[in-house]
């Protein structure tokens, strides 16, 4: 098997705290509780999601409306975060921009997770040829540097939200596949799988009933980290001007527009930057904590 280099390649795709963290004992304590940091991050994300949803029925200012009296205006009662270079309401644009980020973050990872589960669990359970085929598919996905493929697809197939979601989802497949495979390998050796086979359970039943409930937990924890990855990728594409085109506000584009005004009106770039940073940080914190949490539980069980 081309196993070693594959796992190495996949490893690179994962943020930095993969497995070494667990080995370093000084980080593992307080294993039963999620801790206030987790709940703070959770609250922030929930608040932002609620704000995003509220754009559907609360009368926010039109994010594309240009109020010439408020070009580059500072903070005010009317414009909470001020107006940008075209006099548009930054607060409203940030909230609407969160909508694009979240619509990618809450779809792409789950498409990737579904495909990754299918491929990773098949590879880990059946091994042999299936494993080889899956590793070839994963290697092929990783043959393109992610940003370049995303630029290419959005350029040639059009910068629409479905295209954006799909191309980002495509890039989350290898990570999910790898984790699903590793966990399936781990659990498939447990005797309860052998017991199920001895009872005459079909492969499909074993995969769904016995393995899936175990494998999906570390994947779900990991999906939070993938969400932050997708938000960064979406933001980067928007920043480069190849993402969702105007007038739809996106954080990446807001920041790229703000850079033009950096000398005089730095907050235009900084407001969406802070929102984006906090969102990614929160997802990372939650994902990291949940991953530790589920790791510990899995080893106890």
């Amino acid at each position: 098997m081309a196993d070693n280099s594959t796992s190495l390649r996949l490893w690179r795709q994962i943020p930095f705290f993969k497995r070494e963290e667990a080995a370093v004992s000084d980080r593992i304590k307080d294993e039963r509780r999620l801790g206030w940091v987790f709940w703070a991050a959770f609250s922030y994300i929930m608040a932002l999601i609620l704000l995003t949803i509220s754009t559907n029925f609360l009368p926010y200012k039109d994010p594309a409306f240009q109020d010439y009296g408020f070009i580059n205006s500072g903070l005010s009662a009317k414009y909470w975060f001020g107006g940008d270079a075209l006099g548009r309401d930054i607060f409203s644009r940030v909230i609407h921009g969160a909508g694009i980020s979240f619509s990618v973050a809450f779809t792409s990872p789950f498409i990737g997770m579904a495909i990754g589960l299918l491929m990773g669990m098949s590879a880990g359970y059946f091994r042999g040829r299936v494993d080889t085929v899956v590793s070839i598919i994963v290697d092929s996905i990783l043959a393109f540097p992610n940003i370049v493929l995303a630029i290419a697809v959005l350029f040639f197939a059009g910068p629409t939200l479905p295209n954006l979601i799909l191309v980002i989802a495509f890039y989350t497949i290898p990570q999910f596949t790898r984790i699903a495979r590793a966990n399936t390998l781990l659990y498939a050796q447990r005797e309860f799988v052998m017991a199920a086979r001895a009872q005459g359970a079909s492969h499909l039943r074993i995969l769904i009933r016995e393995l899936l409930p175990n494998v999906i937990i570390p994947l779900a924890a990991f999906s939070l980290l993938v969400m932050s990855f997708t938000i960064i990728l979406e933001g980067t594409l928007s920043f480069l001007g190849v993402g969702i085109p105007p007038p739809t506000p996106t954080w990446g584009r807001m920041i790229s527009e703000g850079v033009e005004e950096l000398v005089e009106n730095a907050w235009i770039a900084f407001v969406p930057s802070i929102f984006m940073f906090l969102t990614i940080l929160s997802l990372n914190l939650m994902g990291d904590r949940l991953r530790q949490f589920t790791d510990v539980k899995a080893s106890n069980a």
Binding site: R190, E191, F192, M194, A195, A198, E210, P213, N214, I217, A301
Partner: peptide
């Protein structure tokens, strides 16, 4: 069949 490790023989989930 009954296995050696009863904990591993039961699906934790």
């Amino acid at each position: 069949i009954i296995f050696q490790d009863p904990v591993s023989s039961l699906n934790p989930r």
